[in-house]
Simulated assay, not measured.
Amino acid sequence: MDEIDKNILLHLQENARLSVTQLGKLVGLSTPAVNERVKKLEEKNIIDGYRAIINPENFNKPVTAFILYSNTNCRQFVEYCKEHPEVIECHRLAGQYNYLVKVLTNSVQSLETFIDESMAFGQPSTLIKLSSPVVYKAIK
């Protein structure tokens, strides 16, 4: 991957809705050349997909919690997380805790219900988000 590919990736991370023509102007390449490079980045799974970023507060999900788990029922816990609608991320960890789960919910009461249910899989330690000074940064 050269500097042009990195520049393409930087622009797409900031705005994935750029047209190939606009992207070409930004990186100094023709539309077909940029199109070919983007296709190669997709084929190599460097670009993994394109998504809309939803504001959870405007989607009636104002409570964000990060929950650390120490558990032994890993397979069942992962299935639980995959199927639970309020779990938007689940990460396997090394160290004192073996999972970090990000939960979006509409109230502290529903978060409490989630925590109570999830205790069947292990011991949670919950952190509730107050604010997000850095919401997203492009990978450079």
Rank of each mutant, 00 (worst) to 15 (best):
Y99V: 06
V78N: 08
V38M: 14
G95I: 01
L127K: 14
E86F: 05
Y97I: 05
V78E: 11
E79M: 11
N55V: 12
A33E: 04
P56E: 01
Y69F: 15
E83R: 14
I47A: 10
V101E: 00
T72Y: 01
G28R: 00
Y80E: 14
E43V: 02
K82Q: 14
E117V: 12
R51C: 01
N73R: 03
G49K: 08
M119V: 15
A33G: 08
L9R: 10
P56A: 03
I115H: 13
R92H: 03
I8W: 05
G49P: 03
Y99N: 10
I54L: 06
K39M: 12
Y80V: 11
G95K: 10
G122N: 04
E117M: 13
P85S: 13
E86L: 01
L41I: 12
E79I: 03
V20L: 15
S110H: 12
S107K: 10
E112L: 08
L9Y: 07
Q109C: 03
K39C: 08
C90W: 07
T113M: 13
P56T: 04
K61F: 02
V101T: 10
A65I: 02
A94F: 00
N106S: 07
L41M: 13
A94W: 06
V78H: 06
Q123T: 15
N45D: 13
T21C: 05
E36I: 05
F77P: 09
S125E: 15
V63Q: 02
E42K: 13
V27Q: 01
I115D: 13
R92A: 00
I115R: 14
F114E: 14
R92C: 01
I88E: 07
L12C: 13
P62K: 13
T64C: 03
V103R: 03
N60P: 05
K102G: 03
K61I: 04
V103D: 06
N15T: 00
Y50W: 07
R92I: 02
T64N: 01
K39I: 09
A52F: 11
N45M: 11
L68P: 03
A16Y: 07
A65Q: 00
G49R: 07
V87L: 11
L41F: 12
I67Y: 09
K82C: 11
V20H: 11
Y80N: 13
Q109L: 04
I115K: 14
P85Q: 12
K102A: 02
